Simulated assay, not measured.
Amino acid sequence: MALLLMVADARFKVMQPLRVALAAVLYPVQWLALQPVELAGRMGNYLSTLATAETAQEEARRKLSIQSQRANQVEQLELENQRLRKLLDLSQRLSTDFRAAQVIYDAADPYTRKVIIDKGLMHRVVVGSPVLDEAGVIGQITNVYPLVSEVTLITDRDHAIPVLNVRTGARGVAFGDTSTHADALELRYMAANADVAVGDLLTTSGVDGVYPPGLPVARVEKVERKVDAVFARIYCVPLGLVSGAEHVIVLDPLGDKVPARPVPEAPVTAAKSRGARP
């Protein structure tokens, strides 16, 4: 019978209706049996997609952070480039020898205003050399070591610099002052009725033999005059970036180029004078 049915089904498809009926009857059972497998596959795909999405999100955040850092670096580099260009323009206008330097760090003493630069004795830096940035004078070399040097800023309380009022031509001396704010100067020993106004530009006078004349130093910020005071209180703000300079120029001091004072001739003695008479 089995052999007969096999031959009949192979030749005449007599079992096809029965096969269709059985498939229709068994389809719900097969569907129910496949549901756990399909559910497990969907959960696997969901978890895989979720993990992929989280990985992509983390990668996007990382790239965004890198791009943000690069954007900040670009802005910083643009600012540094502008300062270097101004510093180069200033160096071309100088008539004295100079060398470029970079500020490494601030001095450890909190009661002074000093910075350390990366040039020293090996770079022919000497004590007393003026230091300036692209905006103006920021200080003077006070200590020199083999590879680094110490710069005392013009806002240090023990520092003084001779200045010239560009508007009036009056000379004075500006001292470091921290009574008003951290980075300030005070133009001292100016008479109470001296012609000094807010906004006046102060430059180096050149009379000290250290700073070349005409370098920008500060601008007058406030003038206080009292009836019972002999001198006026004149507060100034430095034009140089004393608290944030990165690249500076170290000038050679003018003391080596100032001609020596002529030696006065010895007075003629009375005896020689009498001997010289006819």
Rank of each mutant, 00 (worst) to 15 (best):
I154M: 08
L64Y: 12
T52E: 05
P146G: 05
R124N: 15
I116Q: 00
E54N: 07
T112K: 13
V144I: 14
G172F: 01
N193P: 08
R93A: 13
Q82S: 05
G169T: 00
H123Q: 10
A184D: 05
R124A: 14
I161F: 09
V74A: 14
K86A: 11
T180H: 08
Q57E: 10
A160C: 06
R61F: 08
P162H: 01
E80A: 11
A107P: 01
Y145W: 05
E150D: 04
A174H: 04
R188C: 13
P146I: 11
S65T: 04
Q102T: 09
P146C: 03
E134N: 00
I138M: 06
L185D: 07
L187Y: 06
R188A: 13
I161K: 12
Q140I: 10
T142V: 15
Q92S: 10
A160M: 06
V125S: 00
N72I: 10
A160Q: 01
E150N: 13
L94I: 05
Q73A: 12
I141M: 01
A100W: 05
E59V: 12
R167H: 07
T155Q: 01
A100G: 09
M122S: 08
D156P: 12
S91H: 00
A194M: 00
T180G: 02
A60C: 03
I138E: 09
G120T: 12
V127Y: 01
G139W: 01
T55L: 15
S149H: 03
E75Y: 13
V103T: 04
Q92Y: 09
L77S: 11
R124S: 15
A51C: 06
D195L: 08
G120V: 01
V137I: 13
V144P: 10
V131Q: 09
T168W: 09
F175G: 04
E186P: 00
